[in-house]
Design a protein around this nucleic acid. Sequence first.
DNA 1: GCCGTTTTCGGCCCGACTGTTTTCAGTCG
Length: 574
Amino acid sequence: MHNQEIAWALSEIADLMDIIGENSFKVRAFRQGALIVESIESPVTKLVARNQLSKIRGIGKGLCAEIESLVHYEKSQLLEKLRNEVPPGLLEILDLPNVGISSVRTFFKAGITTIEELEEMAKARKIRQLPGQGPKTELAILRGIEMIRRRSGKFPIGIAKSAAESFVHFLKNLPEVNRVELTGDLRRHEEMVQEIYILCTAEEESALLELLKKHPSATHILDEGAGYLRFRLTFGIPMHIEVTSEAEFIPRWVETTGTEAHWQALQDLRREQASHYNNPWQSYQTTEEAEENYYESLQLPWIAPELRDSGQEVEKAKQGKLPKLIKEQDIRGDLHIHTKWSDGVSSLEEMVMACQSRGYEYMAITDHSQSLHIARGLSEEQLLKQKKAIESLNKNSADFTVFSGVEMDILTDGRLDYPDEFIQEMDLVIASVHTSLRQERHKIHNRIEQALKNPHVDILAHPTGRLLGSRDPYDVDIDWLFDLAAKTGTVLEINASPERLDLSANLVKQAKERDILIAINTDAHDRARLGDIQYGINNARKAGLEKEDVLNCYSLKEVQKILNKPKSKRNSRS
DNA sequence: GCCGTTTTCGGCCCGACTGTTTTCAGTCG
């Protein structure tokens, strides 16, 4: 069992216990346990085998027992018991914004157990009659349900990807399987994923499908037919596995990766050219090389999956006008990182070492600022102390530089969390909206304006404040924001954390058109999450960014030069 | 449930804001 799956199980246990009114600290222990498991880099199964699990801080006897049961039997008796006790619809209700545990309990008591029942009651204006509820919450509930509907059964890419990876790994280890590749919207890096789609080849197609049906995750078969099987994973995501012949593999991979429009454009081109694809692909080392050969047969350069969208990319490819997309190796540093000094998990030194081992040239430590109490934000004195610690780290390493930065809150009234004379001493200042996310537009605009017009604010973090699939952006006019960023020379962030992916690929595309410099940052709170940079890069690729568009693709010297320039002159890329 | 002891129970990030309420509970970050 994959770490992520264990974490999901623990967090579901926490939610269910919370609903039935279990001790809140016990609930927190499980919730904390889920976070810990997620942040462990090595497979938990190995730790269990070596009896090292209980040595981890935060994992005691109780959690150890549940995790071991998950690893050994792929189930937990506690979870099964709770699932029997609590109607599954309540978890969906708990997911709604503005609905917490206490409201869920109130609804449960009133006999409401599904989103549909809740919606019906809200529409009949009966929710406002329940204790602690009122007309405004009723409206907020209906809006929340609307948001879930828009999501229409899709899953955020982060959840889908880790579920997919563990399954790909499982398939690759089966002796009867020859080739396994991810395809569909996950391969295109769509931020919301309809289903996990895996294409593979096997000696005996039907035997493989029969075997897969016995997999413990395949409890709920959705659909099956010649050469494919669809089932719902334990955590709700549909999994689509297709088995194809070696000869058909590449054409099927191309067909299932791109959108319908992309495939259609390729077919049109083939008819036009009357070209034929013969399948010499066994002579290639990797499936990617073989896929290049497929595009070559259409006299096209290989088109990156992220771009296989409207079909227009085929025309661009024909004319040799595809962007030279940014690659993971182009990233030279991460400019938004937290440590134990505020709400991070890893120490400053651990984060530095982790960035070095990723091959970066530089990084920025950007812990939270003083007003964000919950994140143990740093006072001026603490920040100065941290700056000294960073300076001494820098003295000891010749070929790696740590920027002394801060993620500074933009307060609810538009003031910034430190005075100008203080932040001008920092190497890098990121400004963020973390509080009062539901303010009216003019207030949000005022806050962003104050931050962007400040000469010392270098980057605006997670510029729309959305949480992918679970929270809408705050009320901001994107055109206005981009104009202001361009005018003031403020860098906008792609927050690579898969919970956020903010800016979205669509918005990044618009930002590029206005020549706004982008930074791709992880906002990592522990070492393991530095790997999230991949999500940000994929987002940038989807938007057609090249390395010149991204601040942290420049060398240390160039970045220092950019940061030393007055802000208003930064958007000219020289 | 976890941790850390002043070893076997007591404490466990907290403040702002909102929408309920007539003084506060729930939600959020």
